[in-house]
Each structure stands twice: as structure tokens, then as C-alpha cells.
Design a protein around this nucleic acid. Sequence first.
DNA 1: TCAAATTACGGTCGACGTAAGGATC
DNA 2: GATCCTTACGTCGACCGTAATTTGA
Lengths: 93, 93
Amino acid sequence: MSLVQLEYFVAIAEEGNIGRAAKRLHVSQPPLSRQLKSLEEELGTTLFARTTRGVELLPHGKQFLHHARRILAQVEEAKHSLGQPSDTDREAQ
Amino acid sequence: MSLVQLEYFVAIAEEGNIGRAAKRLHVSQPPLSRQLKSLEEELGTTLFARTTRGVELLPHGKQFLHHARRILAQVEEAKHSLGQPSDTDREAQ
DNA sequence: TCAAATTACGGTCGACGTAAGGATC
DNA sequence: GATCCTTACGTCGACCGTAATTTGA
């Protein structure tokens, strides 16, 4: 599992559509599809049901979404906890 | 930042020595040294003081260690939460 | 000189993007 | 046929391990 996979997963969950998630993340669709598949295989379960409109969270997916969001939020917190300037602050110098 | 970097960082912090951490992680020393440097650069701060005996946590390092451990623990929790359905996934259907 | 970290370097594995291939409506 | 997701395939960057270098007691 990687943080990128979690970011991809959350984006897909929020967009309900891999194509839109890809656009939002500024990558093409295949990487998202592949990373999602890889994540599902590692977890040993299916997170989304694939539909013709896009994808839809399954119960395991909903559950995992909470974890993923919490982890990513704490990563952000960890980054900024060192009292170091944010990206925008650093640019402003 | 990657989860691997966090794992390496925690191991180095606990061993106080990159060589021992490498042995524990079953990798060679250079990857740990490189990933640590990369992490420090991304965070914009130094996490360890390098000594001839090994390395020693600096204040920023101690602070970051808490975050890293919490993140890694939650990753484990996320992985295992799907195997044994917990009560946290009881929400609006 | 010893022990530890770091840097150099070559090779391998992984991830991306374009393109092609299903599947469902 | 249109719109998704997925698989194929070639390329490029990232990471590893061995080896060489640096640094400090």
C-alpha cells in the first residue's frame, strides 16, 4: 500500500468515476485503474462496483474510505507540524 | 513522502543507527541513508544529528516520530479492518 | 585506523502515457 | 455507437545493492 494509492482511491470515491478522478489528479485513466486494482488485490477485497457510468463504493470501500482519509489527513498534519512554512509561504519569499 | 520512508525513519529512530536499522529491515544501509535524506529535504528540516556512533533524534525528529508512528499504526488498522469487519463501518446505508 | 554515514554507479523493477481492447447501455 | 474501465506495450524515472569515498574519534 502506498500513499499515492490512497490518494487515488479517495479521488475515485469522491468522483465516482475514474476518468474524472484522473482529470482532477492530472494523470491519465490507466494509472488510476491499475493502482486501484493493485490496492484491491493487496487488501484482498473489492472496493468498488464497476458500472457503465463509472464506479460505486461497496461496503468495504466505504469502510476503507474513512481510514484512507484519516491517514492522508495525518500525513498533511505531520508535514505541517514541524512549523515549517507551507508551499505558498515559501513561494512568497 | 511515502510509507516506506516513514517505516525507515521509525526504524532508524528506534535503532539510533542506520546500519542496525538496515539489518532489521533487511535492506542495505544506502537506501536508508538516501530515503532519510530525501524525507528531510521534503520536510525542509533535519530530523537526526549525525554522530560517529550513529544518529540521534533532534527535536523535529522526535516530534515527527509521533506522527510517523500514528500513521503507520493506522495503515495497519486500515489493512486489518477489512478482514475482520469492525463496528466502525456501521453508517447510513 | 575503525566505524559509521554518504555518494557513485550500474542494473532492475515499477509507473506512466498512448494505443488498443472489452463491456454495457 | 458512446462511454466507461481495462489491458498491451514501450519508455523513463526511481530504487536497490555493491563499491568507493568521506568524516570523525
